[in-house]
Design a protein around this nucleic acid. Structure first.
Lengths: 162, 162
DNA sequence: GGCGGAATTGATACAAAGTATCATCAGGTG
DNA sequence: CACCTGATGATACTTTGTATCAATTCCGCC
């Protein structure tokens, strides 16, 4: 039992769960659930890493030879609006949200060696960003926190060669 | 006396100070101080806002008709390495560093209405990012914090029209 | 002040990322 | 199952960023 999630952090949703969430959100907001929206979620889940819009496009080609960059970007915009997809600004790429449950203030940790992306939800860090916004009189509507470095595994691997 | 810096936040350096800093840093590191490097610093200071690489290129044209995108990007990379220029990932643009004194963990607040960019240096927020990195086993080498919203002035302006 | 040579820039071409426009198609309501 | 609005397709284009190699320039040294 429980073969996934070896890593100790949030287990990825499986495909039915992800699609069901998408469907629910679309209904709630009276938005259409289209073939392409489902396909993008499916591919991002299958990739299990951040993909650029054009990488995503390539992966959609086998099942939908007529997809174009323009529509991929529209679909990604839509999914980001729903909160189902996040954009990694520093990598110009997109990743499936790992905290499906609620609205959230997330932070990303990105390993520059293996490319792993961890989506964190650190309350203290989130609170600190809000305070800073307040202090400087800003009404924030977007908080980008992307921390890049070496993940634990890559760190030991890079240190370790004899 | 003291006519600049009406805004109550860090006064921008003047041009001689900025160029002098650039010169010092180049000497210290045995790097060349070139015409283009000076010109980029001068234009970013004059703009007093974030510029895209191509905006910068246009502004360099009058004084250097042969500058190209490639060399602008190389120069910007160099200046970022020195810590003299920062890149705003979420705006794909570049801005002069406002905290010349030392190595730093900065955060940006960006007004989506007027485009103003404030470079903050909030110790608590910085500490929270470090803790998060530690907690997840990351050796961080880059911290991107970009908070977007409405600045105080734009907020009152947008609220206020009769 | 001029020389030498590595570092920087110039020129060119190209790749990658993202957007605008308008015609066509399809999701979901009745 | 027809309708019609919102989504996608097709196409062309803009913006952003990089690779390569030749020409130039900075700067330590004499």
């Amino acid at each position: 039992m429980m073969r996934k999630s070896i890593k100790g952090r949030a287990a990825p949703e499986d495909l039915p769960a992800a699609l069901h969430r998408l469907e629910t959100l679309c209904r709630e907001r009276g938005q259409r659930l289209t073939r392409q929206r489902r396909a993008v979620v499916r591919q991002l889940l299958a990739a299990d890493r951040a993909l650029s819009a054009y990488e995503l496009l390539e992966r959609l080609r086998p099942e939908d030879g007529r997809a174009t960059a323009a529509s991929i970007y529209r679909t990604l915009d839509f999914l980001m609006e729903l909160g189902v997809v996040h954009r990694l600004e520093s990598k110009r790429s997109f990743i499936l949200c790992r905290h499906p449950q609620a609205p959230h203030r997330v932070q990303f940790l990105i390993c520059r060696s293996c490319g792993e992306v961890i989506e964190a939800e650190d309350a203290r860090l989130a609170a600190a960003t809000e305070r800073l916004g307040d202090r400087l009189g800003f009404a924030l509507d977007q908080r980008i926190v992307e921390l890049t470095g070496l993940c634990g595994r890559c760190r030991t691997r890079e240190a370790g060669p004899s």
